[in-house]
Write a protein that binds this DNA or RNA. Structure first.
Lengths: 248, 248
DNA sequence: CGCTTTAGTGAACGCCGTTAGCAAACACCG
DNA sequence: CGGTGTTTGCTAACGGCGTTCACTAAAGCG
């Protein structure tokens, strides 16, 4: 019987760190399942602990409270959403920018409607978290998610697919905000024109609008299936961008 | 000293009914304040009762539980929003359809950003309510709110301000959903074309998108002031509808 | 005056988040 | 191996929550 060697020379995680990481993952998995099955209000440290065969205070060795746990899984979910979109994007030929965009946007909606509870906590109002909670991990993950689309848009931009709107119609205040947007997002292009950021914002707002409306079930009593409306909006948006649309 | 006559002949509310109604109003007022000050998670029967100088079980004489109380105040809030929009609409000359629309839409956003907590519970995901809760009162109120805009849109339509989109580009599925929309909403026009409903939906989606994004603070770390973007979107939308836009 | 309906209370149950103190398990060092 | 400090998870406890039930006191009404 050979005893396991403790060769964690180059920052290799020790056994303790590994099992610790594993239980943290388990905590997050259970929390996530409760979120999906019972909504954000149904996630509780006590219930998680119960299911793990331990008690609630024990969880505080892994998580500093329910709020920070929610922030943690929110960040994870942004990662998953980004991965889902990236996977869809990679599933089509990389030269076909049009199809890549179409596919990516559809993937966004698909993920949203198949992960309603997740989407609600990611993109809905912060209703569960106490005000003043540190949400930077989630924000960071959200930023990384956004980058997925920025690169695609960047490519579209460099291919000069669509005419930029008249810069004169952009008020100084709007220009300032758009510039702040571009700077914070870290566009790859060093000097992207505000007009382009404007177009991107508009498109994103429209997309966000349809998907939120569908996931939050706001037209539920008036429209059974929202996919046709999404496809229609998608077509409008893409056409405006000079991108080829094709029915699903 | 004349004793109060009990002349509640024609369904006039008795004294008991009046005071009962008054305490219900008080309950809703306090709940509302707690909602504003501490978010949806901060509304609790016990806290309300404490503030009223009574105990939580007593509230069950007026409200069948916390969920139904939330539904009640949600319905009230839809009423207030509709009233705010209607007031703004009535504050400009009634012949000037363009200005009426512009003013009404701005009023919608204004109300939303000055009543963030309310807007979040009205238009955000149902996160607090247990699944299966009866939300029909809120839905009804929401429907009435929508009617505010339908009439304005109807007027726009009859003035033939904008060209209807090509009906051939509306898929059968979308047409079905749009027709359901038109039917359920009870448009005044008996036979409104699906193309028109299509335009209305698109506009509403875009409006909903900007406002949600602003209220839910989703671009907070990237854009300080969202009003310029809203105004820009508003201009786009109205221009597309053939409605005169003017800066605020 | 009595009788009925209503408003409100207190106690209790079972949930929740969170803190503090404590005991066992573990990793490590001489 | 034994000793030592760290990590882990426990129990107990506090206060808050929604909700139910049995009960009292008041109000209304004849």
């Amino acid at each position: 019987m050979t005893k396991p060697q403790l060769d964690r020379g180059a920052g290799r995680p020790s056994r303790r760190e590994r099992v610790r990481e594993a239980t943290l993952v388990e905590i997050k998995e259970i929390a996530r399942r409760h979120l999906v099955e019972q909504g954000a209000a149904g996630v509780s440290l006590r219930a998680i602990a119960r299911e793990m065969g331990m008690t609630a205070p024990g969880l505080y060795r892994y998580v500093s409270g329910i709020d920070s746990l929610l922030v943690l899984i929110t960040a994870d979910m942004f990662g998953e959403l980004a991965a889902a979109v990236a996977a869809a994007d990679a599933s089509v030929p990389s030269e076909d920018t049009d199809l890549r965009i179409l596919t990516s946007l559809r993937a966004f909606r698909s993920w949203a409607v198949t992960h309603r509870a997740e989407f609600a906590t990611m993109f809905g109002p912060r209703v569960r978290l106490a005000p003043g909670t540190d949400v930077t991990p989630a924000l960071e993950a959200g930023r990384r998610f956004g980058a997925t689309f920025y690169t695609l848009f960047d490519r579209l931009l460099s291919e000069e697919r669509f005419p930029l709107p008249d810069g004169a119609r952009i008020t100084p205040e709007l220009a300032r905000e758009l510039r702040a947007f571009a700077d914070t997002c870290g566009f790859s292009a060093p000097h992207i024109p505000v007009e382009a950021v404007m177009v991107l914002s508009t498109c994103w707002v429209r997309l966000y609008g349809v998907v939120c409306m569908e996931v939050f079930e706001h037209m539920n009593f008036v429209m059974r299936d929202m996919e046709p409306l999404f496809e229609s909006e998608l077509q409008n948006i893409l056409t405006g961008l000079g991108v080829r649309y094709q029915a699903p």
